[in-house]
Write a protein that binds this DNA or RNA. Sequence first.
DNA 1: GTAAAATCTGACATCAGTGTCAGGTTCAAG
DNA 2: CTTGAACCTGACACTGATGTCAGATTTTAC
Lengths: 120, 120
Amino acid sequence: MRIGELARRTGVSERSLRYYETQGLLVSDRTPGGQRTYPERAVDRVILIQELFAAGLHSAKIAELLPCMRDPDGAPNERATPALVSSLTAERTRINQLIADLTRSRAVLDEVIETAAREL
Amino acid sequence: MRIGELARRTGVSERSLRYYETQGLLVSDRTPGGQRTYPERAVDRVILIQELFAAGLHSAKIAELLPCMRDPDGAPNERATPALVSSLTAERTRINQLIADLTRSRAVLDEVIETAAREL
DNA sequence: GTAAAATCTGACATCAGTGTCAGGTTCAAG
DNA sequence: CTTGAACCTGACACTGATGTCAGATTTTAC
């Protein structure tokens, strides 16, 4: 598929998809004319990238991480270096903290929303 | 307490505390010489602000939200307008989505970390 | 072959909280 | 008093993913 369809199907802008490529997160074949072509797998890949961005990982970290994942088709992967494992462990700690903050913030919102609803 | 102590006790930089004040998130008394003075309550307030920032709320939204919270001492609050409730509900939906993304991302990290550990 | 739609590269702008620095003032301890 | 630590305001820089625009090229449909 071409970039427009990938953008439509993932909800990610074409701009971002090109950016992902410059960051080494996403690869594309090119038509003889130079336009990008993606395999079906790219859809899931882009969604995964979005989730990792949402979790606050930077593109450089994602670029290191992706080759170390077990692919759905079980293809062989790179192995994570100790340095990467250490940094991913730190990210996991940060994510756990973030989830805790989010949960508390959501409780605050719930309380304000609930209180307002009671006053109707 | 003065700004240095508040910064130390909350882990938030003096720079940020002053910024919070310009955004209407935090108030301070002033000494005759013009230096900021905070009550004990400010510590919890700053921590709450940090959590809301971590949840992705912008300062303008936090400034609207804070007066509508039930204070721990039960002091009277402003009431949330319908527009605010609507926007907070949207924030809550976003937070729920974000928690889902974070959870999935954490699972990805777990898997990579676990796989690397197994290969030692 | 032609026109319209899609894509290309490259450049510049944006957001919002935070870091940092400069030059001046205030506070607290001796 | 004096001196050093703490604080003040104002200004500028940064980050990093994304928006947007311009001008050129490719693809697709008729």
